[in-house]
Amino acid sequence: MPAPSTRDVGRSIATIRHARRLTQADLAAAAFLSLSMIKAIERGARTPSDDALDSIAAALAVDPSHIVSGRTRTDSRVHAAIPSISAAIAAYDIPTDPPTTPLHQLHAAVDEAVNWRLGAQYAQIATHIAALLEQTLSTLHHASGAQRPQAARLLASTARTADAAAFKYGHHDLSARLVELMRWAALQSEDPLTEATAAYVRTETFFAARAHNAGLRALHSAIDTTPSPRDREAIAVLGSLHMRAAVIAGRAGDSDAADLHLDEARTLGDRIPEGEYRGTAFGPDSVRAHEVSVAVSLGGEHVSRALDVAREWTPPSDLPAERQSGFWIELARAQLWAGLADDSFESLKVARLIAPQHTREHPWARDTAATLRRLKRADAETLTSFAEWVGAV
């Protein structure tokens, strides 16, 4: 897909700014840029540098990919960051120099990184995560007493965020190493819920290897050792394991197990409000989204289940962007199987609007777009443009 023009970039910034109810002066102040620069960028008279674009995106609370949607910018930043991420964890079990960041500041930085992951802001992750891995590793190695389990939990969370970028962009070997780092940290956290969360993330390695039955066994083991769901966090962690087990059971073709785990997740989800617990969204809305995931995982004969959910419910805007876009990508697949090509394309476009990087790197979005283009070759240019953007042609 051709690189967006300077005018396109300016128009995107202005559109997002208006949606945020900000004036140009507000945006200039928040981005630490001059008002004259913001005006020039929005009218297409000036191309923002990478640093200026990052500042504007941060001020608008979006990933830079929401402003510049060409294939190169975020892709290149993520792929370029992979060696530094790999280097940061190469000697994870060997102590380094003492940390330079106080624990409370590290908490805030890790929390911000979690928000990037939930919001599918992979460019931000790529820019900052290697340094954050080094800081959290150093903190764990030099922590003692009550601070040590805290540091272990921070490292586990940081490794999970790094894994999100590695896994989504196809670096599955590095992803597996980051998952093992997360599990290593979780064992030192003195917290069974952190260990259970690591088991949830570990499922990615089974998805990548298509070892679905082995993944289901691993999740059963994690479910058996997870603490009883007596409070919100324990309920959410156990419910998330059941959600993940339902999906992998579906991919294993075990519809009975998929339905059993989905029922368990639904029961647990009804006990707490939707929210982010231990870095994972869980609650009634997340379970509804997974009903579509399970139906699509089971295959075309279950397509009506996905369509039935979509007729009654769509993800609310406060659900994390990655989960929202995942719903629309999976619904698009179901709609394609049902012969609803136009609806399928509309769902893909919604997914792109919500989380462009997540959509573009999702293999099912790519497969669906490629099939739609084959079926509707004579259709409007927009379908071909989308297919090019998602890497389907």
Rank of each mutant, 00 (worst) to 15 (best):
D111F: 11
A40T: 12
I82L: 15
S65W: 04
P95L: 12
H104L: 14
A40W: 05
I94K: 08
S84N: 09
T72G: 00
A52S: 04
I56R: 05
V78Q: 06
E42Q: 12
D50P: 04
P83M: 13
D54L: 15
R43V: 12
Y92G: 02
L33G: 05
P83N: 08
H66W: 03
I82W: 15
R77S: 05
M37K: 11
P98M: 11
P64N: 07
A88M: 08
A57Y: 02
K39Y: 05
A59P: 01
T96H: 09
I89N: 03
I67P: 06
I67S: 04
S69A: 03
A58T: 13
L33R: 09
P95Y: 14
I67L: 00
S55E: 08
T47I: 06
T101P: 03
D97F: 07
S34D: 15
P64W: 07
A109P: 01
D51C: 03
D51P: 02
M37Y: 15
D54G: 05
E42P: 07
A58Y: 06
I41Y: 01
D75G: 03
K39N: 15
A91L: 07
S34A: 05
P95K: 12
D54R: 06
G70Y: 08
V110R: 06
I82C: 13
L33P: 04
D93C: 01
S34V: 02
K39T: 14
A57Q: 07
S34E: 13
T101C: 06
V62F: 01
